[in-house]
């Protein structure tokens, strides 16, 4: 593994780093982290197992094994990335490998929520722009700065308008993506809701 992992904290306004391209649509979370690695009671050791089976199949030629991608932090993917299982182990494994932000054509819903909840911004670009970045071999695009304030991806000679759900963007800028504290601020509203829901009374016999 690379340098010691430290999780993101607080406001996230920009991510700078080298890009790593992973080509393919509908890459599911079973592929990101195969189920046998879910036998754990913490996420600590997941980084080394990210894409384990795909990497073994490609015998060192998988993007996550290439020397040039060793210090990459921005993952570039195609459509419906992270479909399938709700396992948060998938973004946790990516994050522990070194990924700090993901740019793609589109993301599966649960994977997207999981990324937001652990501080990985997921942004989208049209298919054409993604393919341009993925095809590029001359390193021009390979170093990007994601600017969340202005929703831009910038490099030396490029500026691309990124799309991100406004609620997610605000959560990163406000430092409220780790939602527990924000949710707890409404404790009295939560308690009122608990009392008001019609079905809690129906279920009072057993619950």
């Amino acid at each position: 593994m690379k340098s010691k992992f430290s999780p993101p904290i607080g406001k996230i306004t920009q991510i700078k780093g080298r890009c790593i391209s992973l080509i393919g649509n509908d890459i599911d979370t079973d592929r990101i982290i195969p189920a046998r690695f879910l036998k754990c009671v913490n996420f600590d050791s997941l980084g080394k197992s990210v894409f384990k089976d795909d990497r073994e199949t490609l015998k060192g030629k998988h993007p996550f094994d290439l020397e040039e991608n060793k210090n990459a932090t921005i993952l570039i993917v195609n459509s419906n990335f992270g479909c399938g299982s709700s396992r948060e182990h998938a973004p946790q494994a990516l994050m522990r490998w070194g990924i700090k932000g993901i740019i793609g054509e589109s993301f599966a819903d649960i994977f997207y929520s999981n990324c937001i909840a652990i501080g990985i911004p997921c942004l989208t670009l049209p298919k054409k722009s993604i393919q341009e970045i993925q095809k590029n071999k001359d390193n021009k695009f390979l170093f990007l700065e994601i600017d969340l304030k202005n929703s831009l991806a910038k490099s030396k000679d490029l500026s691309l308008k990124l799309e991100i759900k406004e609620s997610s963007r605000k959560m990163f800028l406000l430092g409220e993506w780790d939602a527990t504290a924000t949710l707890l601020e409404n404790e009295s509203l939560i308690e009122n809701k608990y009392k008001d829901l019609p079905y809690l009374e129906f279920n009072s016999d057993l619950l």
């Binding site: 973004p91 999981n114 909840a117 780790d178 527990t180 949710l183 707890l184 939560i190 608990y194």
Partner: peptide, 18 residues
């Protein structure tokens, strides 16, 4: 609907999610 582990934490702590 399905949720991830951080949201499981949120439901345990607050019975709500964002």
């Amino acid at each position: 609907f399905g949720i991830g582990t951080s949201q499981v934490r949120d439901v345990l702590a607050t019975q709500t999610i964002a």
